[in-house]
Computed example of a mutant assay.
Amino acid sequence: MLHASECRGPQAFTGQRVIVVGAGNTAVQIAVELASAAGVTLAGRNPVKFAPQRILGRDMHF
C-alpha cells in the first residue's frame, strides 16, 4: 500500500494488478499513468467526473 506522495511512476508495477482508491484528480492521474504498465482498477465512493487535462494548451494543474 502506497500513499499518492510515494508513487514514483509505473515501472515498479509492470505486469501487476493495482487498485487506486479515490476519484479525485490525483487518483485519476495516477490510475491513468499506471495503466500504461499495469492492470488498474479505480475505486471510489462516487462516479468519476472527467475533465480535460489541458485547456487552451495549458495543463489545468499548472
Rank of each mutant, 00 (worst) to 15 (best):
A27F: 12
E6P: 01
L2G: 07
F50Y: 14
H3T: 09
A27W: 10
D59L: 12
V28N: 03
G24P: 04
A51V: 10
G44A: 15
L42C: 03
V28W: 04
V28L: 09
F13N: 00
F50D: 14
F50V: 13
A43R: 06
G57E: 08
V40Q: 03
I55A: 08
V32H: 10
V28Y: 04
V18P: 00
K49I: 11
I19H: 04
R58F: 08
L56F: 13
G57T: 06
R17L: 05
Q16T: 02
A23F: 04
L42A: 01
N46S: 15
N25M: 09
C7M: 10
F13I: 03
V20S: 00
T41A: 15
Q11S: 14
V21F: 15
S36E: 14
G24L: 03
E33F: 05
Q53L: 14
R45H: 07
A51C: 09
I19V: 15
R54T: 14
E6A: 12
H3P: 02
V20N: 01
F50W: 10
A51L: 08
A51D: 11
I19E: 06
G22S: 06
E33H: 07
G24C: 10
P47S: 07
F62N: 11
V28H: 03
M60I: 15
I19K: 07
A37M: 03
R54K: 12
A4R: 02
M60E: 14
N25R: 08
A23M: 09
Q16W: 00
G44E: 05
F50E: 14
L34A: 04
A37V: 03
R58D: 15
T41S: 15
A35K: 05
H61L: 15
F13V: 04
G57L: 05
F62Y: 13
N25A: 13
V18I: 06
G57S: 07
S36K: 06
I19N: 09
V21Q: 05
V18S: 01
R17M: 04
R58C: 12
Q16D: 13
M1R: 01
A38L: 04
K49F: 06
A35W: 01
V18L: 02
M1Y: 10
Q16P: 02
V20R: 00
R58M: 13
P52D: 12
I55C: 06
A35F: 03
P47H: 07
I55V: 15
L42S: 00
A31S: 11
V21L: 12
N25D: 14
V32A: 14
Q29G: 13
M1L: 08
A43Q: 14
E33C: 08
A37G: 05
N46Y: 11
G24S: 10
G9E: 04
I55S: 09
Q53P: 05
G44H: 00
G39K: 07
D59N: 12
F13M: 00
R45E: 14
A51R: 08
V48T: 06
Q16K: 08
T41D: 15
I19F: 01
T41N: 10
V21C: 13
A12K: 02
I55N: 05
A31T: 05
G39W: 01
R8Y: 11
L42E: 00
E6M: 05
D59Q: 09
A4M: 02
Q11W: 00
G22C: 04
T26C: 11
T14R: 09
L2Q: 11
P10F: 03
R45N: 09
V32Q: 11
Q11C: 08
V28S: 06
E33K: 05
N25T: 11
A12F: 01
H61A: 13
S5Q: 10
M60L: 12
N46H: 13
A27P: 08
